[in-house]
């Protein structure tokens, strides 16, 4: 039994170090954001002696934050509506009918999953020019929808597969159209899957950086990450505490959503990898 005790202690210590490593930079950022520049100079790591919200007020006003939030929100709503709507239709079609072409189409979609935005930068830029989608938030949202389709289809396919086919056939005998079967039978049964897809892809769209950097050019159309990138880069050299407040404002929505929906989160993020 003695050996077990020291083993326990070692594991506790290792896990403790890992938790601190994961959280410390964030805690430091939040603490710094409440300090004044003067205090930051002499007190880099301690608790703020005087909490000030001035950095948040300044960051919010100076950085055009409301605008960035609005832009990101608009992009997210358009992108997610299209992405999840269309992915549902595909996943339904793949599982409702047994056409051999489904497998080939799935492979075709999976190819795009491998090509992340980072690899597609220039290619996307060319199409954005050709289709006059440069500097347009709906245009950016369409790129988000297209790039998120493969994973969403893949994820939802797993949920749609759990719907028994007899249910569809029974509805067909009752004279339901396929579209009616889709909306009033299939969709309600895969609601948990929709929630998972929605949360995962919301985080993707909300955090996305490279595509937004390429497609959007005017400052007042920037999404949050690119706006932050431009603003915080300036702040970084003038005021560290202001930059910390700026970053904190970006982190808060993400952390709140994670805290609320962590179950769907872990489920969705790992589902693709494990089932694949």
């Amino acid at each position: 039994m003695k050996t077990k005790l020291w083993k326990k202690i070692i594991i506790y210590i290792i896990l403790g170090i890992l938790v601190i490593t994961a959280l410390y930079p964030l805690i430091w950022m939040f603490l710094s954001s409440f300090k004044s520049d003067g205090e930051f100079l002499i007190n880099r790591f301690g608790w703020p002696r005087q909490f000030t919200f001035q950095n948040y007020i300044n960051a919010w006003n100076r950085a055009n934050f409301p605008r960035f939030f609005l832009n990101s929100g608009l992009a997210a709503v358009i992108a997610l509506t299209i992405m999840i709507g269309l992915a549902c239709m595909v996943a339904f079609a793949f599982t409702r009918y047994d056409f051999a072409v489904s497998n080939k189409l799935m492979m075709y979609f999976i190819v795009g999953q491998m090509l992340s935005a980072q690899v597609m930068l220039i290619a996307v830029y060319l199409v954005a020019i050709a289709f006059h989608m440069v500097d347009s938030i709906p245009g950016l949202a369409l790129f988000y929808a297209a790039s998120g389709l493969p994973f969403t289809i893949f994820l939802l396919n797993g949920f749609f597969r759990t719907v028994p086919r007899e249910l569809y056939e029974a509805a067909e005998i009752d004279g339901y159209h396929d579209f009616k079967i889709f909306t009033s039978i299939a969709i309600p049964l895969v609601k948990p899957g929709l929630a998972t897809a929605l949360i995962i892809q919301f985080m993707y769209v909300w955090n996305e950086f490279p595509l937004s950097l390429i497609v959007i050019s005017s400052p007042d159309k920037n999404t949050l990450p690119v706006g932050i990138y431009r603003v915080v880069n300036d702040m970084y050299y003038s005021s560290h505490t202001l930059a910390c407040a700026g970053l904190a404002l970006t982190a808060i929505p993400v952390i709140v959503i994670y805290a609320l929906f962590q179950k769907q989160f872990m489920e969705g993020m790992t589902a693709g990898a494990v089932k694949g």
Binding site: L86, L142, A146
Partner: peptide, 23 residues
């Protein structure tokens, strides 16, 4: 019906995620 369900996604994905490779 299968194609009606699949086509919108297929078109969007092809135009904005596969066509870029051709360009």
């Amino acid at each position: 019906n299968f194609w009606l369900f699949v086509l919108p996604a297929l078109v969007l994905y092809t135009a904005l995620w596969m066509l870029p490779l051709v360009f």
